[in-house]
């Protein structure tokens, strides 16, 4: 039996909204410790990794590990009916369940229940090495979203370079080019923290960075981690309960 209540149901809704443009079908991997999602986009360029620890839920019960295969668009349709202060209670049988039950309960006297059909999804699990990164940038998530959105009008590839003066986001395109420099700042409402061992410069597809910023409502700050010649990690922490992490392979010069 899997049964878990998420008091702030809107957190789960925000997770599904954050990943549904990248991931069509995915497994909710439920275990005693957590509910996790790992899935690549169809082009195998980026990967989404979600973790919600059991402590994020009340009444968490997972008797044995289970993979619940969902279609994110269909899950999103059901979550449209979630009230903004509703809790969600998830329920599924142990043995290859064919549906996931979700109860939406608000402060009012209304309880809504929905059943989402589940699918068998073959997944390719990738092992992500737990290695330290050369540069880690923490900045406001809405500021990162604005930068990515603004630079998209100039071209489709963004060079992110982290150096002594800060982090530079650069785009070169047919109509011209642009650079946005983000510097370390201690200001409370606009805090930027840059930890750098060695300067790093990598190229990324803005289209994917833009997909990642769909997770902006989940977190005040985003953490961007880079090392030479490896995928960037764009992490949206979910309080102390988990995260949504996006990995994106760099582009290389021909």
């Amino acid at each position: 039996m899997f049964e878990a209540q998420l008091v702030e149901g809107k957190t789960f809704k925000a997770i599904i909204e954050a990943i549904k443009d990248l991931v069509v079908d995915c497994n909710l991997d439920c275990s005693e410790e957590e509910v996790a999602i790992q899935s690549m986009d169809s082009a195998h360029v980026s990967l989404v990794a979600v973790r919600l620890s059991a402590s994020a839920f009340s009444n968490y019960r997972c008797d044995r590990p289970n993979s619940l295969g969902i279609n994110t668009a269909n899950m999103s349709k059901i979550l449209k009916m979630l009230g903004k202060d509703d809790s969600i209670t998830f329920k599924a049988e142990d043995e290859s369940p064919d549906s996931l039950t979700m109860l939406f309960e608000g402060g009012k006297s209304t309880i809504a229940d929905f059943e989402l059909k589940l699918m068998d999804i073959e997944t390719e699990q990738l092992g992500i090495p737990d290695t330290p990164y050369q540069c880690t940038i923490q900045m406001r998530a809405d500021e990162f979203q604005r930068i990515v959105r603004d630079l998209q009008v100039l071209g489709d590839t963004c060079t992110i370079s982290c150096g002594k003066e800060g982090v530079r986001f650069s785009v070169t395109g047919a109509i011209g080019n642009g650079n946005i420099l983000v510097r370390s700042s201690d200001e409370d409402k606009d805090k930027v923290t840059i930890n750098m061992e060695e300067p790093v410069e990598l190229n990324f597809a803005l289209r994917y960075l833009n997909f990642f910023t769909k997770a902006t409502p989940l977190a005040e700050n985003v953490v961007i981690s880079m090392s030479p010649d490896v995928p960037v990690v764009v992490e949206y922490p979910i309080e102390e309960f988990g995260h949504v992490k996006f990995y994106l392979a760099p582009k290389i010069e021909e």
Partner: peptide
């Protein structure tokens, strides 16, 4: 223009 890498070139399957 730079070429897009595939993620599987970086992370091994488990």
């Amino acid at each position: 223009t730079p070429m897009q890498n595939n993620l599987k070139e970086f992370f091994a399957m488990v």
